[in-house]
Amino acid sequence: MTPFRAHPILSPVLGLEGYYEPASIDEALDILRRGNGKPFAGGTDVIINLRRRTVTYKGLVNIKRLPGIADWSTEPGEGLHIGAATPFRDLESSPSVTQRYSALAESIRVIGSVQLRNMATIGGNLCNASPAADSAPALIVSKATVTFTGNGDGTRSCLVEQFFSGPGRSILDPDGLLLSLEIPEPESNSGDCFQRFTPRGALDIAVVSAASRITLDRSSGRVQEAVIALGAVAPTPVRAGKAEEVLVGHEPTPDLMAQAAKIAKEECNPISDIRGSASYRQALVEVLVRRTLEQALERAQR
């Protein structure tokens, strides 16, 4: 069966004038460069927004069949390479991912539902750029980088924490394409954890989410590095830099972690909306940061 490549729509439906299934990255970029459409893979955000008419697109560019875009691989000591269109469920079902990337695995397990995770992709979660994107805090503490194409030729890379620029916005150009993620191998003297708060266990959006990673100095047992990332408390996923600072160089006592959690609460500046008030969100930040730090420490000490 030959996949068709471009499909003009004679009578516009949902405002769409074309549907494209490029077979190569170059072809995809060419379609995007001509301003013809919105790239999508799982469609769990793009298709829904289109149907709700909260957005209009000239066309849809289905990238799922691009070579390599849904491939992922990992080797012990080599880190994790994830094609942007890899469905979450593929990662969640692999012990080689879940055993080494605890925070990432914990964040994936709470996204939507099993059915949704068989469709929704990790790259789509980042491109959708929700401040509450479940995978973002875990990817930030994992020091994940994304590789994407830009206006010019060639590809660029940046840390996930530098990728977002506002609610629903990223530094990805409208005609750019997110290609892959690279997650470095976690060091053996480190541990991480992700938790979120939602009224329901599944099919819900985080009121607040938090991920923490602690790396211990091998000889002294003190905190060598701490990374704390928060979701749904700012226009983008953010780091709690001041909270991280108080931990570094010290012995990770319960009191110190509680103090860091309090600082994280003070340094974030969430809004009030239908999911929770600003003060409630701040209270959640303190609890979630403390709990994720404690869990991360336990894993680092293992």
Partner: peptide
């Protein structure tokens, strides 16, 4: 819109939401 699961079918053995699957 992929929230309720009533449309669940299996695609190559995996459960998916047929309402948002093109």
């Amino acid at each position: 819109e992929g929230e309720c699961g009533s449309c669940t079918v299996l695609l190559d053995g995996k459960p998916v939401l047929s309402c948002i699957l093109l």
